[in-house]
Nucleic acid binder design. Structure first.
Lengths: 121, 121
DNA sequence: GCTATATTTAACCAAAGTATTAATTAACTT
DNA sequence: AAGTTAATTAATACTTTGGTTAAATATAGC
């Protein structure tokens, strides 16, 4: 797993790590704050390792402040993923078109079951 | 690695597999066509496994046509990744803004060293 | 210096991932 | 039926990942 992008995708391939990123999207947080939701499921050293994976992937930066290690999102790796995704935009937009088409077929009959999955615009 | 999104990101965390997706972005291709660029580096069974990973991740579908197995991109998993990325859009767009700001500071002095990293538009 | 809090490092282990070679299946061609 | 091409499966080996517990480090406060 030598290249950057592979390392980034590998870092994203874990729900705990994605959860930590979601938390960091709300703002800076230190290790124990990030750890709190997971301490029933895993130990603190496990958290440290997850954060190290995120850091090496370029998704977060960790700084020092007394005995705390505040972490925050780093744009770099997100940008790399977004750039890579661009080349497939037409494919996943197809699936939106298909959903739109489907929705058109059901708009008349009020369907309580149809989940719209947050389709924007 | 139970959840879908984790499986998808894990599938993307490999340059061989991303290369196969890039090829498929140009259109359908069967296994040996997809394998060709990699047969110096790895065996055909390895290719089969990579394709299975992409398939289980929902990134491709494989069909049957005589003794060939034409593969093509499947929108689903791409859509899931794109949706997940949305929540971080502001972060990676920040890095574009920062690059723009930087470029503004150097536009007058022609800098040969500055890599622009494919900034679009 | 002692103690408490925050976090990391070390040593280890089980499970998953990536590759191999050899054998097998499937479909077409002659 | 025999041979060729396309692809997969099986058995195996090696490496990486994700977790553990125990010990260590770093900083602050008394």
């Amino acid at each position: 797993m030598r290249d950057n992008l592979s390392q980034t995708f590998a870092a994203l391939a874990d729900p705990t790590r994605r959860g930590m990123l979601a938390k960091l999207a709300e703002g800076e947080a230190n290790v124990s704050e990030l750890a709190k939701p997971y301490l029933k499921e895993m130990s603190l050293p496990a958290i440290t390792k997850h954060l190290k994976v995120l850091e090496r992937a370029g998704l977060i930066t960790k700084t020092r402040e007394a005995q705390w290690r505040p972490c925050k999102l780093k744009e770099d790796a997100f940008k790399d993923v977004a750039d890579w995704m661009e080349q497939y935009r037409m494919f996943w937009e197809q699936s939106l078109d298909r959903l739109d088409a489907y929705l058109k077929t059901v708009t008349s009959k009020s369907s309580a079951k149809g989940k719209t999955r947050g389709r924007k615009k």
